[in-house]
């Protein structure tokens, strides 16, 4: 849930997560965009659904793939960018 009161954001842009088009605001991290979409951001080693946890870069549970480049980053430390394509899992 984006906080509306006392927060001004710039014009949103769109990006793709697993092929789904999502809206994001400049300054948001990929983790924010994902959490706004669903707490489920991938799968654990045992196949169960996975969420992110620490939101500060230490738990490494939020790894996502930036496509088409293929770089894998921590979503909670990486800013969302217009036109970005993100792969989960």
């Amino acid at each position: 849930m984006r906080i509306e009161s006392k927060v001004e954001r710039q014009a949103p842009f769109s990006l793709q997560v697993e092929g789904e088009t999502l809206r994001a605001y400049p300054g948001e991290t990929i983790a924010t965009v994902l959490v706004e979409r669903s707490p489920v951001i991938g799968h654990m080693a045992n196949g169960d659904a996975q969420g992110l946890f620490c939101n500060m870069g230490t738990c490494c549970l939020c790894m996502v793939t930036i496509l088409p480049e293929g770089r894998r980053v921590r979503a909670c430390l990486t800013a969302a960018e217009p036109g970005m394509e993100i792969g989960l899992g």
């Binding site: 906080i3 924010t32 169960d48 996975q50 969420g51 946890f53 620490c54 939101n55 500060m56 738990c59």
Partner: peptide, 16 residues
């Protein structure tokens, strides 16, 4: 505790 939606409290706070 591994269900999506369980966070470190500090992580929630950082979102806020």
């Amino acid at each position: 505790w591994t269900l999506p939606g369980v966070y470190a409290a500090g992580g929630i706070q950082a979102f806020v």
